[in-house]
């Protein structure tokens, strides 16, 4: 049995960690799937999905390190007008941060619950906000 659910998240900062763990737990519990896998996948190229501990200091370090690795004011080739969009996005830092973070994560489902460690929380990381974003929750099992 497969089940796909999508959730929508609106960021309010250019770069922001949005904890979606509780929502994924709820969706898995309501899915009717007892044993299997759940994948959490972002629908975008300027967001990331990452697992980490929900401590403010950890979140701060992650965001500061991302900024240090991919500074906003560096020189990027993608910084130009895009005729196919009719717009200038100038969002290379978002693409590169997204690349570092990855676009998905997976967890087992056992006895209708998503199995994860107590420190493991799921973050949608906005890298080119503020925007409304979509995340797919794909569940597979029996």
């Amino acid at each position: 049995m497969n089940k796909l659910v999508s959730i929508s998240c609106m960021s309010e900062q250019a770069v922001q960690m949005i904890n979606i763990t509780e929502e994924v737990h709820r969706i898995v519990a309501e899915s009717g799937i007892t044993n299997g896998l759940v994948a959490v996948i972002t629908a975008h190229t300027t967001t990331g999905i990452t697992i980490n501990e929900p401590l403010e200091c950890v979140e701060t370090d992650i965001l500061q390190r991302l900024e240090k690795l991919v500074p906003d004011d560096d020189k990027y080739i993608h910084a130009h007008f895009l005729p196919s969009y009719g717009a200038t996005s100038n969002n290379s830092p978002g693409h590169l941060k997204s690349m570092l973070l990855g676009n998905s994560c997976m967890f087992p489902i056992q006895e209708s619950r998503m199995v994860c460690g107590s420190a493991q929380h799921i973050y949608l990381v906005e890298c080119d906000g503020p925007q409304t974003r979509k995340v797919y929750i794909q569940m597979m099992g029996e």
């Binding site: 960021s11 309010e12 969009y85 503020p130």
Partner: peptide, 18 residues
């Protein structure tokens, strides 16, 4: 302009506030 979709007042205001 292409590849953009409608957005809500809340999203517009979030961007203006930011």
């Amino acid at each position: 302009i292409y590849k953009q979709s409608p957005y809500s007042y809340e999203e517009i205001i979030a961007e203006m506030n930011f």
